[in-house]
Nucleic acid binder design. Structure first.
Lengths: 341, 341
DNA sequence: CTGTTAGCGCATTCAA
DNA sequence: TTGAATGCGCTAACAG
């Protein structure tokens, strides 16, 4: 466990010089000593002590990655490849930049605030933050913050976001259904809280339907529970004798796939008996039969953009685009029936 | 940012006393001062500075969770719900015990060693560690280590493992195939390196087949690439004119599901044309049609057991069972055809 | 270009 | 039962 002092002694220089070499402060070190010190650093296998670094006021190089989710849904929600894709992408980026990822899954803003202080976090990436607590966190935390898949109305300019063109996605899906002759659909939201993401996707649909003079309002909206049995009840209510809708617009591929599977068990034919659309274009939509018509998003990209935005904030560079909305596109597959001709 | 000193001043006591209160050293503090100090702690919202803690020799309370995986396969591999399930479970446990999770995805043992030193990690949970580098890490790291889904032959006693009864799983699957009248099968391993996990699952199959006097050796083994196109080539080679096998034994549901999907695109009927089995019993095997016959494992449990074992090591309690092998069971679904009558 | 010094916040002697 | 002093490894302000 060689320290800077040790290295300094071995190299016959002062600790300061060693620090300067380590931090690439080459202006303050001669070529010769630099080389000499670098050799010793290698030879004695110097490893920094982050405790000391944090203590001496530099930030910790830790990026806190917080997924807002009740721990008891951990395994359920994390089953969705979206979470892993974004975690993986963030880790890769952060790692390659010489920072560290501290992961936390929580619903408590206090915990996040405490975490940031305790570790002097270099930055925070917050995923799925509920509307009311985003502002609180931002106000109480010193570290720069980037929000992913989160929405807060007021003062949009205070926040740094990475989101999706969720309205556009909803619009694309609904328009596709309309073009296939569908006139009655229901939107199945991912969350009983009807998050900002769900809301925007729903609104996109609404706009499209309105443009075609098709009624589509809050009655066409169902909020899915995180409890699987509750969801199954909903699914089964959707396939009664006289099916009230010709199409089910899911706000995620995960639940769309689950529903398709459920319907198949009930001998309901997709898309002949009822059409289904998803959102995300994740592996489920491709693996399942029928393959699901959905909205493509690049969740890895989301993570990468979040990291690069955060890095700019950390380095106090100006962030030109505070509110990134990644593009989406419609992927037509086999889960929507053509009703017109 | 109130420090211990601040609190001490406010409470009119010495820093030492405050520390003692914080650490529950009630033997060294009078009831009255304890209450007084506790009030101040609350009032001024004391948050510890982990930098200082690390520096003053106590461990960091950070648990390093390392997934051994080439970053470029991040998104692919993490698509498998297994990874998220185990990460989620570990985070939940670690979190509830007042520790922190630092996540890293890497293939480099040096990086792991450096991480452990740099952060004075309280402990390490290493997932999917290649055979040759496990021993190196254990020798070079001060922190206690628990290995998950990793296998090293020599000196089994040195290591702390959480694995699966992989042989048993292989045995169960093969026996099921045999009971359904299958006499020729091929094993599709998850990795071109044929990891210890793959090997054990394969050996389980081998034993079962041998017991029934069916030939099953290295010719019945194919190593799948992480490159999707490469896998597709393999799948397509399996369904030539005269199919060489009646059953495909996949070492994961992930690839089993992918193959089933691929076969369906090629108009190969599962299980009529060829039978398929998986391993893991993850969401894919349930969502897909036909539902896949597979081996159930509880990946969340794996994470929890790993954490509890690690905690014992951290607290220097004796670990009675160093080599946990979680039980598995056969889940019969619809992807295996009955060939006998 | 290089070295000396002080201090970050905490736990831990040791002394009272 | 309480407090004062020390040092962990590093950075940065200041001197040389």
């Amino acid at each position: 466990m060689s320290t800077i002092k040790d290295i300094a002694k071995k190299a016959g220089v002062s600790p300061t010089t060693v620090t300067n070499v380590i931090h690439g402060n080459y202006a303050r070190v001669s070529e010769a000593t630099r080389v000499k010190v670098e050799k010793c650093l290698k030879k004695y296998n110097y490893t920094p002590n982050m405790g000391a670094m944090i203590l001496s006021q530099k930030d910790s190089r830790i990026i806190g990655v917080i997924m807002f989710m009740e721990p008891r849904w951990n395994e359920t929600v994390l089953e969705d490849p979206f979470s892993s894709a974004i975690i993986g992408a963030i880790e890769e980026e952060v790692h390659s930049l010489g920072y560290y990822v501290m992961l936390q899954i929580t619903t408590s803003e206090e915990e996040v605030i405490r975490l940031a202080k305790t570790w002097k976090l270099a930055g925070l990436i917050l995923v799925w933050v509920p509307k009311n607590i985003g502002p609180i966190i931002l106000d109480s935390v010193e570290s720069p913050v980037v929000f992913v898949d989160s929405h807060f109305d007021e003062d949009e300019d205070k926040y740094h976001y990475v989101n999706l063109q969720d309205e556009k996605g909803g619009h694309l899906i609904a328009n596709h259904l309309i073009s296939m002759g569908h006139k009655s659909a229901v939107f199945l939201a991912n969350d009983i809280f009807f998050s900002g993401t769900d809301l925007r996707r729903f609104n996109g649909c609404k706009t499209a339907f309105k443009e075609s003079n098709i009624e589509f309002d809050d009655f066409n909206k169902i909020l899915l529970s995180k409890e699987r049995n509750e969801r199954y009840k909903v699914y089964s209510s959707l396939i009664g004798d006289e099916m009230p809708y010709t199409a089910l617009i899911f706000s995620s591929d995960y639940y769309a796939a689950e529903a398709v599977s459920y319907f198949q068990d009930c001998n309901v034919k997709i898309p002949d008996d009822i059409s289904v659309t998803g959102y995300d274009d994740n592996i489920f939509s491709r693996l399942i039969r029928p393959k699901i018509t959905t909205i493509h998003q690049n969740s890895g990209e989301k993570g990468r953009v979040a990291v690069s935005m955060l890095m700019k904030l950390i380095k106090k560079e100006t962030v030109d685009l505070k509110n990134v909305k990644l593009d989406v596109e419609l992927v037509i597959r086999d889960s929507v029936k053509k009703l017109n001709n």
